[in-house]
Design a protein around this nucleic acid. Structure first.
Length: 525
RNA sequence: GCACCGGUGGCGAAGCGGCUAACGCGCUGGUCUGCAAAACCAGUAUUCGCGGGUUCAAUUCCCGCCCGGUGCUCCA
């Protein structure tokens, strides 16, 4: 019924895509698990035009860690997949640039909070770039949306759902929102919270009531507003900005699993109490990752920022590949062995693309015309399997498997002399489709490693960089090429001792040399 | 304690009622190569945490147990 209507409206918006070869059957409707309903459901723009989504962004008080980035990466997979299908995306992300931690850290550093947060906000977007994460259409800073938050609180106050406590803070009256708990599936009916917490201390009517607006403590940064001086609560920030940019009701809200309660539950309570409409129809939660089988934490000593990993010599592409490859609803066990494995896996795909693009493939002869080598068919099949897997609740593991199977098959055909010039189109189409979501084939790794080293130098943290990383970037491309040319001359002169010496020298600096019929290739490991 | 999720080869990880249990990495042997690398071929889990049950048939469904993780406390 409604499902069918959605399908139709969705296809109408798909047609605008450029790829004429893409049949509708190649583009099954994306289905995604919805935390709110507990079911896998179709995900289509409710207005038939753009998918409106809100994703909780970073609190910019420090550098982002790999757990943060798993969430942003999975949201990136979602938006890239939607765009690949031709669905327009309107993606809003907040930047929380005021909260307790920021206020504390800024005052400890003796700087204004804006100066303190600017650095980390910039670093956050640099990290996203390193990981090839597309930027949202709208990035909204909390501190620039105070009036929207005030007016939302006022809407709630007008209904007596928001109330002012004695100290000037404003709270949300949970008793007025009977559906409270519907997202996290918690039942608050039987809870007698007064028995557990000393209410006077909180100046709240009920212990569960949460802060919308916090009265300032002495000397703290504050905004003077119609509600009185203070600063916004965390939850109201997302409600206000989501509603400002996406309307009272929109398609999807995303975030890490820990945000489900209380943050997202509170967002729902605030927003739906104010608007009397469904806030977000679909809720997308990304599970936590483990590091070496333990929860990542500073006390465990397994806490890694993206920059930590880059300084150790791991490539952004491998990190992206690893964090993306395990479907978002599964806990992912991040290990250094796994990261090394993904480095090789990315390498395999890049080698394959190079081979397809740079080889002079024979034209299919007239007599061979009838006998299909199966390459084009396999590529087409791989592409549709890839798309189907992603449409099935973003099964990235299955999706990449389809591409790897194609790679092995095509490599084998090519070795057997059964790959022809006109097969390239289909194979590259499958590969490009893969990469529009996975985004690991273009090599930006060296660029970001270099960038991170420069950053470390500025921050006085160069000693954290692995020696091989620094050594690998010592040689310029020109110097490397000169050595390779010398090696080639030595080889021609059958001076293999010198040739191998050069190869070993380069290898020590992380540069790998490969010979093939089509010439010498080199790359940074 | 209550709630939820997961335990599949050396590692990571799909599959979730019946196909030889994907895929990546690793390892072993081979082809190619001056040697490597890349690529390919062959091999690498008679078995899916443990014990019951349902079924003609279970890794896939149900029950119990063990182990790991998460939430309940402004950490993605």
């Amino acid at each position: 019924m409604s499902e069918q209507n959605q399908q139709i409206s969705c296809e109408a918006s798909t047609v605008s895509g450029e790829a004429g070869s893409s049949l509708p059957s190649d583009h099954p409707t994306p289905r995604l698990y919805n935390t709110l309903t507990g079911r896998v459901e179709d995900l289509v723009p409710s207005d038939g035009k753009a998918l409106r989504m809100y994703a909780c962004g970073p609190t910019v008080y420090d550098y982002g860690h790999i757990g943060n980035f798993r969430t942003f990466l999975q949201v990136d997979v979602l938006r890239r997949f939607l765009r690949l299908r031709g669905t327009e995306v309107r993606h809003v992300m907040n930047v929380t640039d005021v909260d307790d931690k920021i206020i504390r850290n800024a005052s400890a550093a003796g700087t204004a909070i804006a100066d303190y947060t600017r650095k980390y906000e910039q670093a956050f977007f640099e990290d996203l770039d390193a990981l090839q994460v597309e930027h949202p259409e709208v990035v909204a800073r909390a501190t620039e949306h105070i009036p929207a938050m005030i007016s939302l609180i006022q809407r709630l106050a007008a209904q007596d759902i928001a109330y002012r406590a004695e100290d000037g803070s404003w709270y949300f009256r949970i008793a007025r929102f009977p559906e409270y708990g519907k997202l996290s599936k918690k039942d608050f009916e039987g809870i007698n919270d007064g028995a557990r917490i000393d209410l006077d201390e909180y100046e709240k009517d009920s212990a569960r009531d949460f802060a919308l607006w916090k009265a300032p403590k002495a000397g703290e940064h504050k905004w003077d507003t119609d509600l009185g001086p203070g600063r916004p609560g965390w939850h109201i920030e997302c409600s206000a900005m989501a509603m400002q940019y996406l309307g009272d009701s929109f398609d999807l809200h995303a975030g890490g699993e820990d945000l489900m309660f209380p943050h997202h539950e509170n967002e729902i309570a605030q927003s739906e109490s104010a608007s009397h409409r469904t806030f977000a129809r679909h809720w997308f939660h990304v599970r936590f990752l483990l590091v070496e089988n333990r929860k990542m934490s500073k006390s465990e000593g397994n806490f890694y920022t993206l920059r930590d990993l880059l300084l150790r010599g791991y490539k952004p592409s491998a990190i992206r590949m690893l964090l993306i490859s395990v479907p978002y609803r599964q806990q992912l066990n991040f290990t250094f062995d796994g990261l090394a494995a993904e480095t090789v896996a990315v390498e395999r795909l890049r080698n394959f693309r190079d081979r397809v693009v740079s080889t002079q493939w024979p034209e299919r002869s007239a007599e061979a015309n009838g006998a299909a080598s199966g390459v084009a068919e396999t590529a087409r099949e791989a592409k549709s399997r890839f798309l189907a897997a992603l449409a099935d609740d973003l099964n990235t593991a299955e999706a990449r498997a389809a591409i790897f199977e194609m790679v092995r098959f095509v490599n084998a055909r090519a070795d057997a002399g059964q790959f022809f010039a006109n097969d390239t189109v289909e194979v590259m189409d499958a590969l490009d489709t893969f990469d529009r979501v996975f985004a690991v084939l273009d090599d930006h790794d060296e660029q970001w490693t270099r960038f991170t080293l420069q950053w470390a130098e500025r921050e006085g943290r160069l000693d954290e960089a692995a020696p091989e990383v620094r050594a690998g970037l010592e040689l310029t491309d020109e110097q490397i090429q000169a050595l390779i040319d010398e090696r080639t001359r030595s080889k021609r002169a059958r001076n293999f001792t010198r040739a191998d010496q050069i190869r070993n020298e380069l290898a020590a600096k992380g540069i790998v040399v490969e010979d093939s019929k089509d010439g010498v290739r080199w790359k940074r490991k």
